[in-house]
Nucleic acid binder design. Structure first.
Lengths: 245, 245
DNA sequence: ATTATTATTGGACAAATGCCACTTAATTGG
DNA sequence: CCAATTAAGTGGCATTTGTCCAATAATAAT
């Protein structure tokens, strides 16, 4: 066919082939009023105009140095800030999920405290925080209900053996707030002493003074913020249930 | 722009847009002579003709009902059998990994015992089992060395808290063989009693008689094979090291 | 029979976890 | 100022789980 790689590449044209649509979607989670919320945008264009969807879009071949950069760009466009944690969850592809044809999307999950995003989202962007449960009850664009459920499940699983839940809290926070966040994400109650013994405070948190509990009553609590790089830490023993990943 | 979704879709043509190349690659692992091996194929076409690569290719929009099916098709083409475990590891994309341009690949990992694949691979396919260490020392096609390293790392990590290592063994196997497999994948030695207490034999294995150890000497050992669905099980406590996922 | 080899189990000790009550330090309301 | 109330943080012990090493069981080779 071709005599050399150079020769081959000269004649190669991607539009000679059947190619799928490729997109990136980001499930951006935060904790608001003690409940997990996800950021959604209302679609302004076809297809699925008018339905709520995850922030997402296409690779910009000029701007994005890799797929992760595409996800990061979408995140910053919608929240105004870089989340302390952004990871890929799964890539799904099939002919039915988008009416334009065979399509593939890489789903990312970002964790971010509510406070730094609030003003930007109110003032600048057509986006809104939805409680995850409420979002899943809507009729969402494409297969985004599935995608949210998968990201939610990844977060639940990782809450069992990582410190990721600290990244949805506004710093500084108390250990009690951190425990409540774990309980919300895991869906189970945890025992106070066990939680404090197991969570590696010295490794992962920095103490930044003291403050009163939310109610304004009771003993003052130590306040913490996450140390750098804590998203790479995994516990030897997991919280809560086991089995059935 | 368009008055309805139907109208919009009538004029939509994917080839009006800049699209990346999309492929699927599969790192198929087995255990051979006590060492982890990965299945590689020598590329017969441009680009990267002549170099060793992971089995992989493009989505067949007629045949493949989803992305997972594409990976499964590649797996069966190369090994002749469906592996008892196939999972997506990561999707990478950037403009440099393929000389044809911006490209995205979904990397899958499959685990399979050596025996059922051996005859098919020898007789039918241009593929060869490489020890993982040796494969990584070659100059491989594209970024496949990176991909293998990432799949290898996922397998190492999951060996810590799942029963996946059992899927690279030819059944029936002994508990000692299973322990040695964990040791090979984790890269650490395990204590015999601890291993046997921690591995949930009753839940995940079926006893299928007895047999002599490999050396033909010593006490006969109980033989086991994996029960169905064991790839979804996760341990509450992990083996070996912790920290630094 | 005796020795070598491998599988499997026992048992002592150490570490982690669950449970619940106690102490500490703040606010609130008399 | 003084209880009562609220929430943070700690003590202590029983239970569970893990580690280490040694004993016992079952086979082949000599």
């Amino acid at each position: 066919m071709h005599s050399s790689e150079k020769e081959y590449l000269k004649h190669y044209n991607i539009h000679d082939y059947e190619v799928p649509l490729v997109s990136v979607d980001v499930a951006i989670f935060t904790l608001l009023d003690g409940k997990l919320h996800v950021l959604m945008v209302e679609r302004g264009e076809f297809p699925q105009k008018g339905r709520w969807s995850l922030p997402g879009g296409f690779i910009n071949q000029k701007q994005d140095k890799d797929l992760h950069a595409t996800a990061l760009r979408k995140l910053v466009e919608k929240t105004g800030v870089k989340a302390p944690h952004l990871e890929q969850v799964i890539t799904v592809g099939n002919p039915n999920r988008d009416p334009r044809g065979w399509s593939v999307t890489s789903l990312y999950m970002a964790l971010i405290p509510y406070a730094p995003t609030a003003e930007f989202i109110d003032a600048v962007v057509d986006a809104r925080w939805w409680p995850v449960d409420a979002a899943l009850k809507q009729t969402l664009a494409f297969d985004h209900a599935d995608l949210i459920a998968q990201a939610r499940e990844r977060l639940r699983a990782k809450a069992g053996y990582t410190a990721l839940p600290m990244y949805v809290l506004n710093a500084p926070f108390t250990l009690t707030q951190l425990q409540q966040t774990y309980e919300e994400l895991l869906g189970t109650q945890l025992e106070k002493k066990s939680f404090r013994r197991k969570f590696p405070v010295d490794e992962l948190l920095e103490e930044v003074g003291e403050g009163l509990p939310e109610s304004g009553r009771g003993r003052i609590a130590a306040l913490y913020r996450p140390k750098k790089g804590g998203d790479r830490y995994t516990f030897l023993r997991s919280f809560g249930a086991g089995e059935e990943a």
